[in-house]
């Protein structure tokens, strides 16, 4: 089996896991009930968490496939945060022997702008307030990226003795915490040069782009399914040209995103010289397109789309949040015009 076949099989299994998670509890129940431990365990059994480790062959592709597929159901929100945390730690040095479980990353972290965290010169402990840490409640550890003149230091903070509060989030499918660090012990993971930071940033960007792609695929499919079955004026609304063309516009957004995300994943995986350029294009396009698709899906669902009975608004919430990450759509575009 080549890498394409492996990815194909893993995606099929992921689709099953995500489908099971959705049938256990509705999105609304899930967002009110917190993280889904069963899904996390199944992802572990499928080997997705092992694939995060540096010696896993084809690991990056499989992890990003998982990030995309779980976003289809807006489940396992801590996977993205854990992925970015572990990749960041591993980019700096060996991953320490900590118990398995979700790990949070200081988000948006240095890769989008410095966090207001100070590190004590003596014992290296960290102090500061992190306003938005996705998966920050369920995580056992936090990866911090602390910029310096030569790049950034990366360290690991155990979260069990820190002060954490749930943040009231606009996207309830991605729970987050406010984390207060008060002279918290921090373990050094290593140092990243500016070149290594660029490489890491490309990986972060494609991960967020993959999250957008999964979400837009799902909400596009939902809109098309609804347009086939909902009747008005004596026929399915999918027979009206305006609705058909809106669905076709969504399809263009999904397919263009799919193509550029797949290309960017391959470039980052291969360590190509243009990986950051492709990742910037993929992330900025995916964020923008996800917003359009999510909004169109709400509109195709009519008045139902504006209610909690319908899941469409959850995808719009995810899209709006994603579009502000890592510098935001316009920030990434401006960067693309100047790299």
């Amino acid at each position: 089996m080549d890498a394409d076949d492996v990815e194909h099989e893993v995606r099929a299994e992921l689709t099953r896991i995500v489908g099971a998670a959705r049938s256990r509890r509705s999105l609304r129940e899930r967002t009110e009930g917190g993280d889904d431990d069963a899904t996390r365990r199944q992802l572990g059994e499928l080997g997705i968490l092992d694939a995060l480790l540096p010696d896993a062959p084809g690991g990056l592709r499989l992890v990003l496939a998982a990030v995309e597929e779980v976003a289809v159901g807006l489940v396992a929100a801590d996977l993205l945060a854990s992925t970015l945390a572990v990749w960041t730690g591993l980019a700096a040095g060996p991953w320490p022997p900590i118990p398995p479980g979700p790990t949070a990353v200081a988000w948006p972290g240095f890769l989008a702008g410095p966090e207001p965290v100070r590190r004590a010169a003596g014992d290296g402990s960290v102090t500061g307030r992190l306003g938005y840490v996705p998966a920050g409640l369920s995580a056992t550890h936090l990866v911090l990226v602390l910029p310096d003149s030569a790049g950034a230091a990366v360290c690991l903070v155990a979260l069990d003795h820190t002060h954490r509060q749930p943040l009231a989030v606009a996207d309830p499918s991605r729970p987050a915490a406010v984390v207060e660090l008060r002279s918290a012990p921090a373990r050094d993971l290593g140092h990243l040069s500016t070149v290594e930071l660029d490489r890491l940033r490309a990986a972060w960007l494609v991960a967020v782009a993959a999250d957008c792609l999964g979400g837009m695929r799902a909400t596009h499919d939902a809109a098309v399914g609804y347009a086939r079955q909902r009747t008005a004026f004596g026929r399915p609304i999918g027979g009206f040209q305006a609705v058909r063309h809106r669905c076709a516009d969504m399809f263009v957004d999904v397919e263009t995103t799919r193509a550029v995300v797949r290309g960017a994943v391959a470039a980052v995986d291969a360590g190509d010289g243009d990986a950051l350029t492709l990742a910037l294009a993929a992330a900025s396009h995916a964020m923008d397109a996800f917003g359009r698709v999510a909004e169109s899906s709400i509109l195709v669902h009519g008045a139902l789309g504006f209610t909690y009975e319908c899941e469409a608004h959850f995808y719009a919430r995810r899209a709006y949040g994603n579009a502000a990450l890592l510098g935001g759509v316009d920030g990434l575009r401006a960067e693309l015009a100047t790299v």
């Binding site: 193509a259 550029v260 350029t277 294009a281 900025s284 923008d288 960067e335």
Partner: peptide
Amino acid sequence: ARLGAIRARRIV
């Protein structure tokens, strides 16, 4: 940002 959006389209 507008230029970058056009470059992204080219890459897509």
